[in-house]
Write a protein that binds this DNA or RNA. Sequence first.
DNA 1: GATGAATGAGAATTCATTCAT
DNA 2: TATGAATGAATTCTCATTCAT
Lengths: 219, 219, 219, 219
Amino acid sequence: MATRSERKELITERRRRQILDAALAVFSTKGYGEATISDIAREAGIAVGTIYNYYPSKREVLVSILASRVLSEPFLQLMEQPTEVDDKKFFSSLIEERLTLLTQNADKFLFMLFEAYRDHDLRRKWAQEVVQPAMMKAEQRLRSRTEAGAFRPMNPSVTARALAGMAIGFAVLAMIEGESSPCRAIPRDELASELADFVLTGLGRRGNGSSQSTEGEKR
Amino acid sequence: MATRSERKELITERRRRQILDAALAVFSTKGYGEATISDIAREAGIAVGTIYNYYPSKREVLVSILASRVLSEPFLQLMEQPTEVDDKKFFSSLIEERLTLLTQNADKFLFMLFEAYRDHDLRRKWAQEVVQPAMMKAEQRLRSRTEAGAFRPMNPSVTARALAGMAIGFAVLAMIEGESSPCRAIPRDELASELADFVLTGLGRRGNGSSQSTEGEKR
Amino acid sequence: MATRSERKELITERRRRQILDAALAVFSTKGYGEATISDIAREAGIAVGTIYNYYPSKREVLVSILASRVLSEPFLQLMEQPTEVDDKKFFSSLIEERLTLLTQNADKFLFMLFEAYRDHDLRRKWAQEVVQPAMMKAEQRLRSRTEAGAFRPMNPSVTARALAGMAIGFAVLAMIEGESSPCRAIPRDELASELADFVLTGLGRRGNGSSQSTEGEKR
Amino acid sequence: MATRSERKELITERRRRQILDAALAVFSTKGYGEATISDIAREAGIAVGTIYNYYPSKREVLVSILASRVLSEPFLQLMEQPTEVDDKKFFSSLIEERLTLLTQNADKFLFMLFEAYRDHDLRRKWAQEVVQPAMMKAEQRLRSRTEAGAFRPMNPSVTARALAGMAIGFAVLAMIEGESSPCRAIPRDELASELADFVLTGLGRRGNGSSQSTEGEKR
DNA sequence: GATGAATGAGAATTCATTCAT
DNA sequence: TATGAATGAATTCTCATTCAT
C-alpha cells in the first residue's frame, strides 16, 4: 500500500518542520553556538533523542534551516515583486509590506545573515537562489519603467540594490533604535508614503535637478 | 614620579587592547558562541590564564568589545558628517567612504549587530550613543538644506534613516552576493556617483514629479 | 499503573544514594576542597557527567550529603536513647555503642563537623534537628532519674551536654592517639564500664562529697 | 658581623610568623583546599610572590602551620595543668579556662583536627608531643589524688581522657548549637562550677553509690 | 519511533607557581 | 627582597551524541 508509506512520509515531514521551527526560534534567540539541543527539544515539545531520529547532528539542523528557510518563506517573499502599476502606490505598498516582514522577522533574519555569512556554500546559495533572481526582476522593472520614460536613465543593477538595501538597512536601524526611534511614532502607511516619495524624487526639489549645487557653487 | 604606575597603566591598556583585538577577530569569524578562550589566547599570542587577569569571563570580553568598539572606531566614524557643501560631491564621497568602511568591516559589523541584538543594554547604548546622535546630525543637515531651498520638504527623521539604511543594506547585499554581484565590476567612484544621483533625484526623471504615474497607466 | 514512574523514581533514588555514598567516602578522605568530581565519579563507578544529571554542582553534592547524612544515620542513632533502666547497665551499653559508632565513623564525623562549621544553615539545621532533640531527651531522662531520687539535683542542660560531649571528645582523642593510646589495650566492655562508673560517681570516693578537699591539702 | 645576619634572621622570622598567622586564619575559615595563596597574601598584606620566598609551596605552609601551631599555642596550653590544690576550685578554673580557649579557637582547632587527621605524621606528632604528655600529667595527678584518698580508685588513663574529652566535646557541641544552646544563658563561672560538680561527684547522690539500680530493679 | 539517562570530550575558569622587574 | 603579571595544568561544568528501554 502506498498509503502506509505516504502517511509515514507525511508524519516525518511534520516532525521535521516541527523541529526546524523550534530550532529556528531557539537559534535566532540564542545564536547557534549558545543554543542547545535540549533547548530545541524543549521548544518543540519532544525528547532530545527524537531530534536525532530526523537529523544526524546539531550542525545538520542548522544547515537544514538555512537551506530550507533562507531559500523560502519569508525570504523569497521578501524579494517578490507585486504587480501594481502606479509607481507611488507600488512603492508605498511594497515598502510597507517589506518593512513589516523584516521587522517581524528581524531576529531570524539577523541570525541567518550572520550564520550564512560564515557558511560559504549557504551564502552562495542564498545569493544565487534568492538575492540575484529578485534583483534581476527588480532591474527588469526599472529598465522597463525607464524605457517607458517614467524613470530617468540609470544603472539598474546599482539602483535595485540601493532600493532593496534601503529597506534592509532601514529595518536594521529600526531594530537598533527600538522604541526610541522617532519613526515609531509615524503610522506605518505614512512612513511608507514618505519613503516612496524619497525613492521616487530623491532629496531634491521636484522640477529642478537636485544635483544643482548651492549658489556658492554656481558655475 | 608617577612614572611607575603610569607605565603599569600603559601596559595594562596595551594588553587589554591586544585581547580585545584578538577577541574581535575571533568572534567575528566564528561567532561568540563558537569561539573559545583558547582561540582568543592563540590569536593574541598569550596564555589562556592571562585573559582572565584582564577580564573576569568570556562574556565580559564580549561586552567590553561591544562597549568599546561599537562606541568608537569605526562606528562613530561611520556616522560622522563631512563638511563638503556641494551636494553631489558630498554624497559621492560620503557614500564611497562609508561603503568602503562597511565592506571592510562587514564581519565585525554583522557580529556586533547580531550580538548587540541579543544584549538589551548594549543595543540601547548603541542606539543612544552612536545611532541617534548621528541621525540627529543628518537630520540637521537635511533641514538646513531644505531651508536653503536645495532639498524638497520632507520628514528628516525618516529620510535620514532611509539614507543611512541604504548604505547599510547595500553593504549587506554586497556581502551576500560577494564576487557574483554586478556591482563588483563598477569602479568604486562611479558606484558612489550613481548612488549619489539616486539619493538626490530619486528614480524619476528630473523636472517631472516622478510619483506621477505614466500615461499608459492612467485609468 | 504508576509502575513506570515509580520505577524511574526508584532508579533515580538509587543513583543519588550511589553518588552520595561515593562522595561521602571521597570527601571524608580528602576533604571537600581537595576532592574532585572525577574522584567521586571514579569511586561511584560512573561518568563525571552523570553526577551532574543528579546534582547541579559539587557544592550541592556536599550540601546534600550534609543534609541527608547529618540528619540521619548514623547521627540520629548516635543520640537515641535506649530504654534500659539499670543506670550502670544503661550507661555501659550506651557508651560502648556510641564509642563504636563514633570511632568507626570518625572520618565522616570530622569531615561533616568541619564542613558544617563553615555552612551556617547546615549548622543550624544540625543543631535544631539532631543535637537539640537528642539533648532534650537526655535532659528528660536526667530529670526523671533525679525525681526518682537516683540522681542528685543538677542542671540537666549542662550535664546532658557534658555527657554527650564526653563521648565525642573521648572519641576524638582516641582518633588522635590512634594505636598509641593506652585505651586501645582495654577491652571495649571494660572501657565502657569504667566510663560508666566515672559518669555515675565522678572522681570522688563514694560516701563522701568529693568536692571537699582532703585534709592533707588543708591549710 | 653577627648583627647583620641576626637582624636578617629576625626579619625572616617575623615574616614567617606573619605568613603563618594569615594562613592559619584563612585555612581555618575556608579550609585548606579552598583557600588560595592569594587569600593568604591578601590577609598578610604582602604579595603572592613573597610567600614563595619563605615557603616552597602551599602544602609546605600547611605543614608548617600544623607543625608549629599544633605543637604550641594554644594547644600545649590547652593541656597544661594549673597547680591549684582544692579539687573543686581546681576543676572549676581549669574547665572555665579551657572552655574559653576552645570556644575562641574552635575554627582553628577544628581545621587542625581535620587536616591533622589526614596527615599521619602530623597526627602521630600531635599525639606524641602534645596529647600524651598532657595525658600523662593528668594521670599522674589522678593517681596522686587517689593515693591521698581524695579520689576513688580508677583507671587513670581512661579517666584522664574522659575528662579532657568532656571539655573538647562540650566545646564542639557548644559550637554546633551556637546561640541556641541553653548553656549560653549560664554565666561562665556557674557553668564551670556545675561541670566541676559533675566531674567530682558524677550523676549519683552524694553518700550513696549511684550505680544502685532503682527499686524496680532491686534484687 | 520516542524517550531521556549516561557518557566523555571539550570548554570555561581557577590558581599554584615562576620570574622579570 | 618584594612584587604581581604570566603561565598552563588541573578542575568544574556543559552538552552533543548514543543507546537501552
